[in-house]
Amino acid sequence: MTFSPELEARFEKLLKSYPEGRESSALVPMLLYAQDEIGAVTPELVEEVARRLRLTPAAVESVVSYYSMLRKHPVGKYHIQICTNISCQLTGGEELFEHACRKLGIGNREVTPDGLFSIEEVECLGACSWAPAIEVNYDYHHKVTPEALDRLIDSLRKLH
């Protein structure tokens, strides 16, 4: 399995940031960065990372299944993560989530047929004072109204 030069450089840097013999410490970020590039933690990726860090694939699998951001199946090109935790709930996060599902015609953790969008109801994103908050891929959006979300989705769709 091959990665982009940028990703390889990142791995190399990561591996140098731990004491000698502790390279497997890079596992969690390596999986996340690799997922960003290839879309999901595929069995091939598990194999590859396990090989590089001298772990068994089963040990890697055990870690993958623990972290909520690591996923085995690809999401949409724009992965809309909507927080409905307490601060966002108080300011309309749940309604926003329902609105997004209606707007895109998909449910939680589903992908639109064109592969452009997916929705995930997530736990606190750390944007409580500017709730309700969403993250599209890694971009934060604060105080998101249903109308603002509509505008965002429409503008993203226009890019394609």
Binding site: R22, S25, V28, V63, Y66
Partner: peptide, 27 residues
């Protein structure tokens, strides 16, 4: 100083779970 990314786990905010995660394991 090195910067390490988590990957989605509130429990990793607990100090010893954070260290487990930092070392490449389940939190």
């Amino acid at each position: 100083v090195y910067v390490q990314s988590g990957a989605g786990s509130y429990e990793c905010g607990e100090e010893s779970a954070l260290l487990e995660s930092l070392e490449g394991r389940r939190g």
